[in-house]
Design a protein around this nucleic acid. Structure first.
Lengths: 231, 231
DNA sequence: TTCCGATTACTCGAAATCGAGTATTAGACC
DNA sequence: GGTCTAATACTCGATTTCGAGTAATCGGAA
């Protein structure tokens, strides 16, 4: 899969919008907002205009007319080209069919869990669960509204999917918090004790790691095999 | 929450690494790779050095020595400062406790589902499910290996979380494909028929939308209330 | 009538991001 | 002893991205 000439997801949305009919950039942004697509595709004005310029340069869209209305800024109307339709087609194919490597911020946080004492982590995860519950409830409420209006699901599956992902995140955070709370996570006794030592004796986590036998005895076989991280 | 001076997640990992001990940038990158953190936090050399420079400028880290080994490039060793520790602390607090707005590529794709005929979508989603299953199986296999080595879960929760998210994505994609396949998605009969008309009569989707009654009769009440999108 | 906030429509420059490129050395292998 | 690959350690500059700023117009309330 060769790299796209214009890789910003917003460019995908621009192609999708111009696939309907020619528009000027601001009109595209209004359309996306009106349809709630900015929830799924990050929209910002700075990017919009540079992305449109890049698409034009790549031959995926072309300016068809320039309107001027009194003293207001010019509006340049763009239309999609044949090559632009092909690009959109290829892009949508890729978006739907091929998973891409993606990074969630919670994943980054979890990668450094041991840096905080267990109780602090539990507290924060529970705070996240509350916030996620709210977000999910809001989306679900919106879905119910749309269902009541008989607006077909096909037009908001992306929001349903968002709920699915948020729910998975929520469930994982909740489960993890519960496990840490009862010390059920293997290794977490060691983790807790290390932070206690740090707090009580004023020593540094790395001191503990440098001579674990002194603080924990011989019953932590993995410490010798793999050096722990993040503490 | 005021914006961070250095917002790149890689900067978070740099602070986390230097929290352990002073290192030079390349050493940080090796450490992250060695621990598999680059799966959770995007690492690229270009960003690494500019992020380190930005962190230094912001006073979160400082150069402590510059080594030269024969004719090889200089290695500048950095250490975290007090203010850097505080920043890391605050950042991890945010990463764990506060959900951020995030965009998944499948969400972008789903937002333009109606642009493809149902059968094509089903095929692509099923292709994605297969790829996701493979990715998940690989991660699960790795987890089993680490478990067999008694390496504590606390050090790979981020990977567990990744599995949770990927599984949610997989399940959603699989369910959606199945629903579309049997035409169970409300509105999808309309969707299918529109693409059939496009294929058979050589007309454009927008023609169908401009005079839906002509092609579908009066039994699509929502068409009058909300204009459909993406076709 | 006039003021205010919202909407329309875009511009600009600073900062971030990327990934390919460079140059050296250590070790492997024949 | 020569060559080849992998690892070490960064550099560079072209894009991209961002979001705040600008400036005009419109509708409604005071």
């Amino acid at each position: 899969m060769a790299k796209r000439k214009v890789a910003n997801p917003l460019a995908f949305a621009v192609l999708g919008s111009l696939g309907e009919r020619p528009m000027h950039p601001y009109e595209i942004s209004s359309l996306l907002k009106g349809r709630g697509k900015e929830v799924s595709i990050k929209l910002n004005y700075g990017s919009l205009y540079s992305v449109v310029a890049a698409l034009e340069k790549a031959g995926f869209i072309e300016a068809v007319e320039t309107l001027r209305d009194g003293n207001r800024p010019e509006r340049t109307v763009y239309a999609i080209t044949e090559s632009g339709r092909a690009e959109f087609d290829d892009w949508l194919t890729e978006l739907l069919g091929t998973p891409a490597k993606e990074f969630r911020q919670l994943e980054a946080g979890l990668a450094y869990l041991p840096a905080f004492p267990p109780d602090r982590v539990v507290e924060l995860l529970e705070q996240r669960v509350v916030a996620l519950d709210e977000e999910i409830a809001q989306l679900v409420g919106m879905h119910e509204f749309m269902q009541s209006k008989k607006f077909p699901r096909i037009f908001w599956v992306e929001s349903e999917f968002r709920v699915a992902v948020l729910t998975a995140e929520r469930d994982y955070a909740k489960g993890l918090a519960a496990e840490i709370r009862v010390d059920g996570l293997e290794g977490s006794a060691f983790w807790r004790r290390t932070h206690e030592l740090v707090a009580e004796l004023g020593i540094k986590p790395r001191d503990v790691l440098q001579d674990p036998v002194k603080y924990f005895g011989e019953d932590l076989p993995w410490l010798k095999e793999v050096p722990p991280e993040g503490l």
